[in-house]
């Protein structure tokens, strides 16, 4: 028997073409995807562990400090990486990036006239522990305007990138915050099938707060699972 990965559940994923999100119109593949029978090429994938982590990579309130603390509301974001069978995924690299508290990205292409924070980069990474847990300390990102349509604003979000155990489990997504009134107006969030949108919203959890320091949010990831297949 060989272990391969369960198929992508297309009912939980956004489509390539979602015209309300205008950039999809010229960039979405138009032809039907060709199914691939998983081989070693698809059940393997890049392996990254603690050796690639900097000492402060999980703490975005400290990893780019130049002259003082970054401005904004400190938060903890924590949760677990699971597969769809509920199995924790240990030793998995997670990369994150986000805007600062004013809604400005460090990226030079971001021309939003909100202030940069000299003490905040907005990039971080960590590796899940033996129970698939991760934890970042950061600043709550601000909403920001973008050019998709008239008076368009992105809801506050943090970008996440996960490899999971194989090429097949690759996931890049965005985590949103509960109760954000901008969500209903955001074509990127709304491009997700309605019954799966809440999977992208973190939960405020008092137990994850650090008293007198930071509020706490929980966000879990669910990657494709494994299944056995007879070897030919």
């Amino acid at each position: 028997m060989t272990e391969i990965y369960t198929p992508r559940d297309w009912s939980s994923q956004p489509p390539y073409l979602h015209p309300d999100y205008k950039s999809t119109v010229l960039r979405a593949p138009t032809k039907k995807l060709i199914p691939i029978r998983q081989s070693l090429s698809e059940i393997t994938g890049p392996v990254y562990g603690h050796d690639r982590l900097g000492a402060l990579d999980t703490d975005l309130t400290r990893n780019a400090v130049k002259s003082g603390e970054p401005i904004g509301e400190r938060i903890v974001v924590t949760g677990r990486v699971l597969d769809e069978n509920g199995r924790p995924q240990p030793n998995m690299l997670i990369e994150i990036w986000q805007a600062n508290a004013a809604g400005r990205y460090v990226h030079v292409v971001d021309q939003h006239p909100a202030p940069l924070d000299p003490n905040f980069l907005g990039g971080g990474r960590c590796v899940t522990d033996s129970e698939g847990r991760y934890k970042f300390t950061t600043i709550k990102p601000g909403a920001y305007p973008w050019g998709n349509h008239d008076n368009a604003w992105r809801p506050a979000h943090i970008h996440f990138s996960l490899f999971g155990p194989s090429l097949s489990t690759r996931l890049v997504t965005q985590m949103y915050f509960p109760g954000d009134p901008l969500l209903a107006f955001d074509p990127i969030y709304m491009g997700t099938p309605a019954d799966c949108r809440e999977l992208l919203i973190s939960k405020f959890m008092l137990e994850h707060t650090e008293p007198s320091f930071a509020l706490g949010y929980e966000f879990d990831f669910v990657l494709r699972g494994r299944r056995q297949t007879p070897t030919e």
């Binding site: 990226h107 996931l171 997504t173 990127i188 990657l223």
Partner: peptide, 19 residues
């Protein structure tokens, strides 16, 4: 019962300083 797979979202235009 299986957990639902986390939906993907775009990498966006501003990934470079982290990825």
């Amino acid at each position: 019962s299986k957990l639902r797979q986390t939906p993907s979202q775009t990498v966006g235009p501003f990934f470079a300083y982290a990825l």
